[in-house]
Amino acid sequence: MLFAFLCKDKPGALQLRLDTRPAHLEWLNGLNAAQKIAFAGPFLDQDGKPDGSLVVVEAANQAEAEAMAANDPYAIAGLFETVDVRAWNWTVNKPES
């Protein structure tokens, strides 16, 4: 089952995001190697600067997805103001399995 992590950065936390980005990308690459990630990327503010994240993962259930979200280096570093983990159904333009 797919789950979307909808993450909003704390105000004024751009430098924390930039400092933590290498560890975050390593974490994403690990999920990709384990075939657990569908896609991911930052939300952008009006100036085109990142201010949140969208990560879509494959997990067995809500608890597994929430544990994955909690292990994101951005979350561990305290970057996010909020993280919403929601089950998601990919309906249009889903790549072939």
Rank of each mutant, 00 (worst) to 15 (best):
R17M: 03
A75C: 15
A60N: 03
D9A: 10
V57N: 03
R21F: 00
V83G: 09
A4L: 15
F39G: 05
V85C: 10
V92G: 07
G12M: 07
F5K: 09
E58G: 10
G48P: 09
N93A: 15
F43Y: 04
G30D: 03
L79N: 08
A75N: 14
K94I: 09
E81V: 10
K36W: 10
A67Y: 13
P22W: 03
F43N: 02
A4N: 12
F43K: 04
E26P: 01
E81N: 11
Y74W: 05
D9F: 06
N71W: 01
P42K: 05
A33E: 03
K10P: 08
D51S: 15
G41M: 02
F43P: 02
K49T: 12
H24A: 05
D19K: 09
S53L: 08
N29Y: 05
L6G: 00
P22G: 00
P11R: 11
F80L: 12
V57Q: 04
I37S: 02
A60D: 01
W27T: 00
S97T: 12
G48D: 06
R21D: 00
P11T: 08
L2V: 14
P73S: 11
A70H: 12
S53Q: 06
T91F: 13
G78D: 03
V92S: 13
N32A: 13
D51E: 09
K49V: 09
N89H: 15
T20A: 07
L31C: 04
A70W: 08
D72G: 10
I37P: 00
K36H: 10
K94D: 07
V83A: 14
Q35L: 03
A69P: 09
A23C: 00
K8F: 14
L2A: 10
K10S: 07
G52H: 03
F43V: 05
R21Y: 02
W90Y: 15
A23Q: 03
S97L: 13
N29M: 02
F43H: 01
A59W: 07
A13D: 07
A70V: 05
L31H: 05
K49C: 11
A59Q: 12
Q35E: 01
A75I: 14
A75W: 11
K49P: 07
G12R: 09
M1K: 14
K94S: 11
V92P: 06
S53H: 08
F43S: 06
L16P: 07
A69M: 09
E64N: 11
F5R: 08
C7G: 14
P95N: 06
N93Q: 13
D9G: 10
F3Q: 04
L6C: 05
Q46K: 10
E96C: 08
A63S: 02
A87F: 09
G52K: 06
F43D: 02
K8D: 13
T20E: 04
Q62A: 15
S53I: 07
M1L: 15
V85Y: 03
G48L: 13
K36V: 13
W90T: 13
W88Q: 06
D47T: 06
A38T: 09
Q46R: 10
A60T: 04
W88P: 07
T82K: 08
P11E: 05
D47K: 07
N32H: 10
Q35D: 02
G30C: 02
T91I: 15
W90L: 14
A59I: 12
R17G: 01
P42H: 04
L18Q: 02
H24W: 07
S53V: 03
A23D: 02
L31N: 01
V56A: 07
G48Q: 12
